[in-house]
């Protein structure tokens, strides 16, 4: 039983982190075709927010709760700045945003190195998370459950926002057909900006979760950005269910493969699996049906 539950649970937690990293990407990629390689650095920013909050508020249990909204706002504002300074000039050539944001990511990483040092800082685990619960004989760290809950909560909020608010309706309209949405009076550029804020903020929240597992590190974002993008591509752009399923699938698959082989071989095999899946379904698992070509 242990051989199944352990990878399943850790894999689900990994999937939850991947989901937090991928939600912002799938929003901006699905809506604007923008590929934001700096999204990984927003995770890093979130992790540093968690670290800094802990320096100000000494009680680890309180600071981690406070850090979540702060990380959302700080990372979101950074996203807005990125949109306003770089991305907005490049909406007509989305593929180029990939390279420009790689440059932004390099600068942000170096900034973090200069401010906080090349070595990472540990984030103290609050007492109420520093426990293990017994699941079918496996002592599961509670922080992994916290990560999953955080991801599920973010997902639920995002889903509610997209489904039931007028802002969410505007986002969905812009994703499905930008020109038509504009003719109906949707201010698509404003919607783009808000989506960027939202997506970057979600990455910040993900960063708080990561900081509980691996602490902070200037290069923390680089290890998540490629898997997160694979999740987005595999899930199909424009809706959440594909991303959720893909994140969970990639997380669990990696965990099982790690269990059977080794960490690095698991990574290679997961990538190979995703490529194989994509040759079967080039548009990802789920897609918004449109009448456009290809």
């Amino acid at each position: 039983m242990d051989a199944l539950t352990t990878p399943f649970l850790t894999g689900t937690a990994t999937g939850a982190i991947l989901l937090m990293a991928a939600l912002g990407l799938t929003l901006t990629f699905g809506q604007m075709g923008v590929i934001n390689m700096a999204n990984g650095e927003f995770l890093m920013v979130g992790a540093y927010v968690a670290y800094l909050t802990q320096q100000v508020i000494s009680s680890a249990g309180v600071s981690i709760i406070i850090a979540i909204p702060i990380a959302f706002v700080v990372a979101g504002l950074l996203g807005l700045v990125l949109e306003a300074t770089v991305i907005r000039w490049m909406y007509d050539r989305p593929l180029d945003t990939l390279l420009a944001t790689v440059g932004v990511a390099l600068v942000l990483q170096q900034l973090a190195k200069d401010i906080f040092g090349a070595q990472g800082d540990p984030v103290v685990l609050p007492g109420w998370l520093d426990a293990r619960i017994n699941v079918f004989g496996y002592e599961w760290p509670l922080r992994q459950l916290f990560t999953i809950l955080l991801a599920v909560a973010s997902l639920a909020l995002l889903n509610a926002l997209l489904r039931y608010t007028s802002f969410g309706r505007r986002i969905r309209a812009t994703v499905q057909n930008r020109q038509l949405a504009e003719t109906q009076g949707v201010p698509t550029r404003n919607v783009d900006r808000m989506t960027f804020f939202l997506g970057s903020g979600l990455a910040g929240v993900g960063g708080v979760a990561i900081s509980l597992i691996s602490g902070t590190n200037p290069t923390l974002g680089t290890s998540y950005i490629i898997p997160a993008f694979l999740v987005v591509v595999l899930g199909g752009v424009g809706q959440l269910k594909g991303t959720v399923l893909a994140a969970w699938g990639v997380g669990v698959a990696t965990a099982f493969l790690t269990d059977w082989t080794s960490g690095s071989m698991a990574q290679v095999m997961t990538f190979a699996l995703v490529v194989a899946m994509l040759t079967l379904r080039p548009q990802g698992l789920f897609t918004v049906r449109t009448r456009s070509l290809a």
């Binding site: 590929i35 591509v233 071989m265 990538f271 490529v275």
Partner: peptide
């Protein structure tokens, strides 16, 4: 007919996988 960003991401993942494979 995988193209554009999908193509770019896949090739980048390939480079990551290759380096990881060599290290392993």
């Amino acid at each position: 007919r995988v193209k554009g960003a999908y193509f770019a991401i896949l090739t980048q993942a390939m480079a990551v996988a290759f380096a990881v494979l060599l290290e392993a």
